[in-house]
Amino acid sequence: MRANRSTSRSNQRGISFIGLLFVAIVLACVGVVVAQVIPTLVEYQAIDKAANKAKEGVTVPEVRAIFDRAQAIDDFKLSGKDIVVEKVGEKVVVSYSYEREIHLFGPAYLTMKYKGQSR
């Protein structure tokens, strides 16, 4: 017995070339944005590590100096002047907040707002 050709074609499923091209373009655009976001996440981790190290200082100038030394090593854009140093009970708490902009296309930007404090 022969299979009915019209039925077998209507049962076929898949993606057309145009659909495949559209999916590839969307994935490429998402990949480009992700590739630009990852360095800001690495920078955030370095700043968080520096804030946790800086809380070991006793005075405010000492905390800022420890943070600036970590900034010189890890090469991020935040400096000791940009952090807030507070004493909560017996603990020194270093907090920070900053923004990074990623240019997407034309007038469109992706703004990443980071905020954190030492643990």
Rank of each mutant, 00 (worst) to 15 (best):
M1H: 00
M1C: 00
R2L: 02
A3E: 00
A3R: 05
N4S: 09
R5W: 00
R5M: 07
S6G: 06
S6L: 11
T7N: 09
T7P: 01
R9P: 00
S10C: 03
R13G: 04
R13I: 04
R13E: 04
I15W: 01
S16Q: 04
S16M: 05
S16V: 04
F17V: 14
I18D: 04
I18N: 08
G19I: 04
G19K: 05
L20D: 05
L20T: 12
L21G: 15
L21C: 14
F22P: 04
V26A: 12
A28C: 12
A28V: 09
C29F: 10
C29P: 01
G31E: 04
G31D: 05
V32A: 12
V32M: 13
V34S: 09
V34R: 01
A35W: 02
A35I: 00
A35D: 01
Q36N: 13
V37H: 06
V37M: 13
I38D: 02
P39H: 06
P39E: 06
P39Q: 07
T40G: 05
T40N: 13
T40P: 02
L41Q: 04
L41R: 03
V42W: 07
E43Q: 12
E43V: 05
E43L: 08
Q45F: 02
A46L: 03
A46P: 00
A46D: 08
D48P: 00
K49D: 07
K49H: 06
A50N: 05
A51R: 06
N52I: 00
N52W: 00
N52C: 03
K53P: 01
K53L: 14
E56Q: 11
E56F: 09
E56W: 05
E56C: 07
G57H: 06
G57W: 05
V58H: 10
V58A: 13
T59C: 11
T59N: 11
V60K: 12
V60E: 15
E62S: 12
E62M: 12
R64E: 09
R64Y: 03
F67N: 11
D68V: 08
R69S: 15
A70S: 13
A70T: 02
A70R: 12
Q71E: 11
A72S: 13
A72Q: 13
D74R: 06
D74H: 09
F76A: 03
K77W: 00
K77I: 01
L78R: 06
L78Y: 02
L78E: 04
K81R: 14
K81M: 09
I83H: 07
V84I: 14
V84Q: 14
V85Y: 02
E86G: 10
K87L: 08
K87F: 06
E90V: 09
K91H: 04
V92S: 11
V93R: 14
V94S: 08
S95D: 10
S95W: 09
Y96A: 11
Y96F: 15
Y96G: 11
S97K: 14
Y98A: 15
E99G: 12
E99M: 13
E99S: 15
R100W: 03
R100K: 15
E101P: 10
E101I: 05
I102C: 10
I102M: 10
I102H: 08
I102W: 06
L104N: 05
L104T: 04
L104V: 14
G106E: 10
Y109A: 13
Y109Q: 13
T111W: 02
T111C: 07
K113E: 08
K113P: 01
Y114L: 14
Y114P: 06
K115S: 14
Q117N: 12
Q117I: 03
S118C: 05
S118D: 03
S118V: 01
S118I: 02
R119T: 02
